[in-house]
Design a binder for these strands. Structure first.
Lengths: 242, 242
DNA sequence: TAAATAGTGTCTATGAGACATTATGTA
DNA sequence: TACATAATGTCTCATAGACACTATTTA
């Protein structure tokens, strides 16, 4: 990095941004969870035009500063802030990752809006507290499968679709599945997560083999606790973060 | 999609965007090619502050319209336009894909700039014509490996690094390699591309096996032509697009 | 004919998929 | 004890990696 010389300092001090039109930049969140053995996405009901009363992804505009010294919040920070505002969840308990930036002209009828989409994964045990703050009628976990017909605002259907493809693609080679189970879980429970996300039943034996490799790699460890079942209870495990 | 009712039409007609500060949105291109058996990235020399005389990724601001009806160019269109402006290459001959959006506060000292980075892959036979238009001293293909010490403007070193990881990750399961060889190529030539990008020698026998599978799948076909060599010349192939 | 590179074949290890079998806790 | 589900084991097939070997063209 070249450090700013005197000439550059003078330049910056006198710099006035030209008055070209700028777009608004928003952050939209595709928040997934699994409840009742179904993959769900969090949607909020719009109270204003455009798309009034339609369901939309939670999100909002990035807060931008006026001056060169105070330029406003980071993009990731904006996503974390929105996540907290809309769900009440603190970002350190939630998987959050940038997905893609949607910037087609005309995607918002009011004005030019470029939207940076993020994927968030909320553990099932945290999902119930999401609606605790607001009006339950305005924030809901929608089953992703049933979403095709639903009236989503803007291009949010495309956003959800891309997010779905992303988590499906990453499930096998990442640790993403552990953000879709409670803190402790059994092998069959984790297997169910894979089955739900991939929409394909997972062979118990083969899945256990993969699971055991993760155990050997130290990615997972046994945890205390039991599940209340009507037959043989499964061993409970815990994901070792870091 | 809900169609706009009369009420919504009225709303949009009267809508005035609030005067919150907005960021500038730029498109930056990580343009790769392979020349002289080395992976290279296209950099341009900055003529103005900040980072005057430092090397930077080609790019520019997205052109945004003033009104709701004319919102300006699509994000992808902006990337294509920049590619054409900076390289003279028409976008239909070049692989172009969105990479990631960089939005840290302070990454441009002048003002808030959010930059949507794209990856472009230029075939080696097209690489030489890139500098034909401008001043050769101001546009150059830099060897990616030697870039660590180089003085890159802004956070462009991070951008290049992420782009590199992306193409390395996608090389094996995508058709991306065919955008880094000439229109016709031999098996050893394609193998070299893999070796260069992954920085790892590829076993001739094993690579050929993979290649033959692509042949069987109809992804590739034999092409006329020969290479001028000092020993046995290899068969020439062509990638079947679509 | 020698040199150089293209091209082929083989052995092994690993992991996925399909599926049969055994073990164990609960009602 | 019967049932349900956890947990284990086995067979096959596809593919990657390592490496030895043969074929062909040019100088």
């Amino acid at each position: 990095m070249a450090r700013a010389g005197d000439e550059e300092k003078a330049f910056l001090a006198n710099y006035k941004p030209k008055d070209y039109p700028r777009p608004s930049v928003a952050v939209d969140l595709v928040v997934f969870t699994i409840v009742d053995a179904q993959l769900r996405v969090l949607l909020v009901k719009r109270k204003e035009h455009p798309f009034k009363n339609a369901w939309a992804l939670p999100g909002g505009f990035v807060r931008v500063g006026e001056t060169a010294d105070a330029q406003g919040e980071d993009l990731d920070a904006a996503a974390q802030r929105e996540l907290h505002e809309e769900t009440g969840l603190s970002p350190d308990r939630v998987f959050l990752e940038q997905l893609y930036t949607f910037g087609k002209s005309g995607r918002d009828p009011r004005m030019r809006v470029i939207s940076v989409a993020y994927i968030a994964l909320v553990r099932p045990d945290l999902a119930p507290i999401v609606r605790a703050g607001g009006d339950a009628a305005d924030v809901q976990w929608f089953v992703v499968d049933g979403l095709k017909k639903a009236d989503l605002a803007f291009d949010h259907r495309d956003v959800v679709q891309l997010a779905l493809e992303r988590i499906r693609g990453k499930l096998d080679y990442s640790n993403l599945a552990f953000d879709l189970v409670p803190l402790t879980f059994t092998i069959p429970e984790l297997r169910t997560v894979f089955a739900i996300v991939l929409d394909k039943v997972q062979d118990p034996g083969n899945f256990r083999r993969r699971f055991n490799r993760m155990l050997e790699d130290g990615l997972i460890e046994k945890a205390p606790g039991k599940r209340i079942t009507t037959s043989k209870p499964a061993t409970v495990y815990r994901y070792k973060r870091g």
